[in-house]
Design a protein around this nucleic acid. Structure first.
Lengths: 256, 256
DNA sequence: CGTGCATTTGATAGCTATCAAAGAAGGTGG
DNA sequence: CCACCTTCTTTGATAGCTATCAAATGCACG
């Protein structure tokens, strides 16, 4: 099957030159699981897992003692996700839409991958990217107001799943307002209020529950606190409102 | 020199069986730098760096456009730290006490380490630990009150630099209240108030600016929100206030 | 077309930041 | 060794932001 989960895994993670034996050995320890919207992705709770998300999108959540849940990360097709086992087993990978995933016992995966350092390196680089994203999340949560968090979140999503649409960027968000709130440390009401405010200011447009267009990326960068806010009218700021970083949309990326 | 930075690097990162040639090649691309309290650790801004902290302790900070700084992580001797280069170069590694560090260009390091998959694996495992800590930080910042963050912070520090002292755990915190606040997304005043409250409740004791004793770890776990808070006096909770997780203090660990 | 759930909007309370000032701690120079 | 001085920490009063509580509206699905 040219489009099977394992085929996607091979194309995404294994190098073009890696041996067939390596692929076979990894296939032997990987187990495919499917999950529909809202379902947990079944995982062996006995050991740390490396999960390759072949299709769909997920949220990585931790359940708090008080029953609430904190979203640690969102993941999209092609991501590798590391799930540590902790006493209490409180991490869950939950499907936002229908998903296909392959889960590997982490240590066994690395034992096999050691035969092919390039694969190990790929996993490492993805882990470092995931670390970087987690650090960015910590920045969002630590030093930002509700509006800054929402604007920053939208820009981060634009880089992962944004599609250019005229002068705007179109997003089809697979997660609910509640998930967004749980991810940003905000309540669902606050998320909604900030969406409304950005909409009134014509920085975004929305349709239905999941479609969002970013209409003024430069101003969103300002609202996100990515650039120093110019003091309106009192000082002359040379070169303000530059065209932001203009990073490529939807660059290949992942989430160990 | 048996105690040189490179010797510590070898003992901490390289496996006992790794070749001398590997060590020599890594040594060739690593540059030692020292920094006193408050100084930045000098790093080549041209490329991503992997930094091995041979001695001392540091904070990884990002400077915000408004001039404030967010602390992303604290690091201690033996840690490996990954510093990505971003446009704007806003990440800094700052010494909390006198430090010795070795910095490597990340890609060159990995090129060399590919010859020895066990080394690559060590780096990967440390990256995953750093990711886990960053996720925990995100939980702290996202879903916790000031007191929960402080209690959680103290417990996290206990696991890294805690020293058993009678029935208590002694901490010699190398960072200021301001650094703690910048790390937890709180102001210095709020940090101080929470310390005072924990002190009044006899959960901690302090001496001078840096010494802290954790006197009631189980209750601190409750205050940190690690265990469900028992509803006082209205319901009977079977087996509450168990002796927490009793994880080992100061286990070998690192921070890529 | 009706039902159930997600989202939006509104009013109020609580928590933490901010502003302000006093009180330790640790280092320096006499 | 002690007095001084700078810096960090602690404590207090107030304002602002977001959570919470409550209700209406809108969307998607059967």
């Amino acid at each position: 099957m040219a489009d099977s989960p394992f085929e996607r895994f091979r194309q995404s993670i294994l190098t073009r030159y890696s041996s067939r034996e390596l692929a076979a050995r990894l296939t032997a320890i990987g187990s495919v699981s499917r999950a529909a919207h809202g379902q947990r992705i079944a995982l062996d709770p006995a050991a740390d897992q490396l999960v390759f998300l072949a299709s769909g999108s997920t949220k990585l959540v931790v359940r708090m003692p008080d029953g609430s849940e904190q979203v640690l990360a969102f993941h999209f097709a092609g991501d590798m996700i590391h799930l540590p086992r902790r006493p209490g087993n409180d991490f869950d990978l939950v499907a936002l839409v229908d998903c296909t995933a392959i889960s590997f016992p982490a240590m066994a995966f690395l034992d096999i991958a050691e035969a092919e350092p390039a694969v190990l390196r790929t996993i490492l680089l993805r882990a470092l990217m995931a670390l970087q994203r987690s650090r960015n999340k910590a920045i969002r949560l630590g030093r930002k107001s509700a509006q800054e968090r929402i604007a920053d979140f939208l820009l981060a999503m634009a880089e992962r799943i944004g599609i250019p649409d005229g002068t705007a960027i179109r997003l089809d968000l697979p997660m609910s307002r509640r998930d967004i709130g749980n991810s940003l440390g905000l309540t669902i009401e606050t998320v909604s209020r900030q969406f409304s405010e950005l909409r009134e200011d014509h920085l975004i447009a929305t349709a239905g529950r999941s479609l969002v267009w970013l209409q003024d990326r430069a101003e969103l960068e300002v609202r996100a606190g990515h650039v120093a806010t110019p003091v309106s009218g009192t000082e002359i700021c040379a070169g303000s409102k530059k065209a932001s970083h203009t990073r490529p949309i939807a660059e290949a990326d992942s989430g160990v």
